[in-house]
Amino acid sequence: MNTLPFPRRSVDQVMTEERAAAFTKRSIKADSKLAALKLAISMMDLTTLEGKDTPGKVAHLCRKAVSPAEPRYGVPSCAAVCVYPNMVAAAKAFTKGTPVKVAAVATAFPSGLMPLSVKLEDTRLAVEDGADEIDMVIDRGAFLRGEYRQVFDEIAAVKEACRGAHLKVIFETGELQTYDNVRLAADLAIAAGADFIKTSTGKVSPAATLPVTLVMLEAIRDHFYKTGVRIGMKPAGGIRTAKEALAYLVMLNETLGADWMTPALFRFGASSLANDVLMQIARLVDGRYQSANYFSLP
């Protein structure tokens, strides 16, 4: 019933965490740091996923994504805004004519515990409203029961419903818990047609961590060697400081290399991260820190 179309890989926890910790020890400075921080901004999916979201809030977010800082800092726009399906139309209107994409969380986000037909309809409506990217969640219940075929089929069905919109598959790694599970989910999602694989919804703690992201990058690397296709990666949730973001970029640089260091293949899912990165950029450009009051809330 649940035979997998690929060999199951095991992951050793101790060495994975040790390797991940090593990336935090690299030192990036001055021009290289400034370039890396700007790259991080360009990779950001600015996110608001709250029950109290309104078009007004989404307008703030979109404005921030389009021009994150004063022009003199030369900061690029963010990659996308990430919103609930009901906010897609508003987000599309506010980002019209800009390079900022609109991503919608769909498929009964964040739990994924609804019938497939509802998930597909959710996806279709978001795409119809203009979503460029769909961030779906896998059914963790099915995964943990061992119903891998169901998880696979759902991803494949959602992919079809995306009709050209980019599909990011969220594992909610904080619920999968083991690195073995994360690796299996990654292989499964990639085989089922994910364009991106994504760690978390941001609703469960722990969200993204360096070792979890490393395990997923390794799955992407193996797929590249096997097929020549580059899958994207999105760590989401829990990344709050510029320093952490740099550690992720170092890890990307040493695990998948320069070809992945683009918003087309790597995203940060975050809300508060942007301001810390902008503060560091301002410090590098101006030579001093500015008060947080100078940076608008997303």
Partner: peptide, 8 residues
């Protein structure tokens, strides 16, 4: 690998 960032 390693070509995407300069380490100072």
């Amino acid at each position: 690998l390693g070509e995407g960032l300069l380490y100072a």
